[in-house]
């Protein structure tokens, strides 16, 4: 049995999102396996980012249940009990109903971190500051809600030192340690993408959601990104959910692929199986525009050629 079914970290059930009269996502089901890289793909406008925004709390779903079992599999009875109780998470902080939580709560409590399609770094703050802000909640606690911080107690100093050490570790991993004191806005595009991922990782998440992390990267940077994602899964033990258009990246790193088209799921499975799914090929080919058809064909040919 596949991991995403036997030990799901996140289970999305019946997710529907309507904007006024427009239904962006309807009755969408998926799960994200613990310790796996899951890719959410689909043509432009399929509703991928909407799903993302629902998971991370930026949109309130019209309908649906998004359950995150943070520390290990949870029985269906527990889940139903929590759902009926009307609470947002259980007492032991193991199970979270994301559709009931605010965006910052999802990041801080359920520990789901994300990046954005159009990079959202704090451009006027330095690279190091970006990574320190990501550790805000831990540092806030250490500073006794600012009180100990004002007195500059040794406990707070130690916590700040640890936060800097964590930031330095990440900067070394993404090869940006030399730029630590430069404003984030002055970095080249590819570095900004990596920095945004590192910043999200500094939140100390269990689930990392990446919105088109390979967009605008050159082949060398894409390869670096693939390495980084694998390392996040294998070395940090963090599950990853990503939206991606670059099929070579998707096919290389993901353990599980979900395909979305017109707001509905059309395929779900291992990369190999999804790639050969006629419905997926049709979704990518089923476009009116001649040029897009050719582009889609070549993309499928490319992804067939690049994966062993």
């Amino acid at each position: 049995m596949s991991r995403w079914l036997s030990d799901p970290l996140l289970t999305v059930e019946g997710l529907t999102m309507r904007f006024g009269g427009l239904t962006a996502v309807s009755d969408f089901h998926m799960s994200v396996g613990r310790g796996e890289i899951t890719a959410l793909i689909g043509p432009n406008g399929a509703g991928k980012t909407t799903v993302f925004n629902c998971i991370t709390g930026f949109y309130k779903p019209t309908q649906g249940r998004l359950a995150l079992a943070r520390d290990g599999a949870v029985s269906g009875a527990d889940l139903d009990a929590l759902t009926r109780s009307g609470r947002r998470f259980d007492r032991a902080d193991r199970l979270f109903l994301l559709e009931r939580m605010a965006d910052h709560e999802i990041a801080a409590r359920a520990r789901v971190a994300r990046t954005f399609q159009n990079i959202r770094l704090f451009t006027g703050m330095t690279v190091l500051e970006n990574l320190i802000v990501a550790q805000h909640n831990a540092l806030m606690r250490a500073s006794g809600m600012t009180l100990f911080g004002l007195l500059n107690t040794s406990g707070y100093q130690r916590a700040e030192g640890e936060a800097v050490a964590r930031a330095v570790r990440w900067l070394e991993r993404i090869n940006l340690i030399e730029r630590a004191d430069d404003p984030a806005g002055s970095l080249p595009y590819g570095d900004q993408r990596r920095l945004e991922i590192a910043r999200a990782m500094c939140v100390d998440p269990v689930l990392l959601c990446l919105d088109e992390p390979a967009a605008g990267l050159n082949p060398r940077e894409s390869a670096q990104l693939t390495e980084l994602l694998r390392s996040i899964r294998d070395d940090d033990g963090v599950s990853v959910l990503l939206i991606e258009h670059d099929m070579s990246v998707v096919m290389q790193v993901s353990d599980h692929v979900v395909v979305l088209d017109y707001g509905r799921k059309i395929a779900d499975g291992a990369p190999q199986a999804v790639r050969e799914d006629p419905k997926v090929i049709a979704a990518y080919l089923g476009v009116d525009d001649e040029a897009e058809v050719i582009e889609a064909e070549s993309e499928i040919a490319r992804m067939a050629g690049e994966t062993p």
């Binding site: 930026f58 910052h104 801080a108 971190a113 954005f116 959202r120 703050m125 500051e129």
Partner: peptide, 15 residues
Amino acid sequence: EALREDEIACRSLGV
């Protein structure tokens, strides 16, 4: 200051 720079990014980081 992070809020001044980008409120949405702040919320994504749990602020």
